[in-house]
Amino acid sequence: MSVLTTFKPPKALSGKEFTYCPGCQHGTVHRLIAEVIDELQIQGRTIMVAPVGCSVFAYEFFDVDGTVAAHGRAPAVATGMKRALKDSVVFTYQGDGDLAAIGTAEIVHAANRGEKITTIFINNAIYGMTGGQMAPTTLLGMKTSTCPYGRTVENDGYPVHVCELLKETGGIAYLERTTVNTPQDIRKTRKALRKAFTAQLKGLGFSLVEVLSTCPTNWGMNPIEATEWLEENLKREFKVGLFVDKVGDDQ
């Protein structure tokens, strides 16, 4: 008899247990990024920039050089790294508060410059680490601890659509919005991540993959309900799909 491992965790993860809540999809996206790093054989020259938010510890979960940026500033930190070390592969991992509220200037300008870095953007429509406050991507009517009566246009304006905003910037080489609810979605996200990193490796410009994700704890649901809520609500506001692809066939 011989035993073959058909699915096992990628090498680019450090093996450290994730600090996320049960069912939180941060971990799924982490694993997909690491799988792509393995596949592209870039572990030895990759540097990651973790954000402030639930994924503040992300730099410990990957077996690559890493740091934590100030809240929202990861694209600027990554820019400094990439300009200093042109052969490195630099990626930022950011949540919706980090990227779409406090870090709006940094992400727009990094994208517009065509900075040769990759950003993985987790949009779960809520602040996780600080305990469930309103995010720039919180849906209208959605209740959080800082919009306890539901988000209103009058008071808080509209949910920020990051991909729709960024697609007009000249420096974008790859831009896609995905989900990781089903095995099929997960395979699509993996493919998007591979293309995003390939855009960087080919020097084509800035790449970003927005992943709509669940936050069961702060949404007040069990993990299964959260995936259903995402399908019915988050996906209605934020259309999944490909926005920019200058990579073409990356095989």
């Binding site: 699915f7 994730f18 996320y20 939180c24 971990g27 990781v180 095995p183 395979r187």
Partner: peptide, 8 residues
């Protein structure tokens, strides 16, 4: 199961 597991 491997694909959806958030905790490897």
């Amino acid at each position: 199961c491997y694909l959806v597991c958030p905790d490897t």
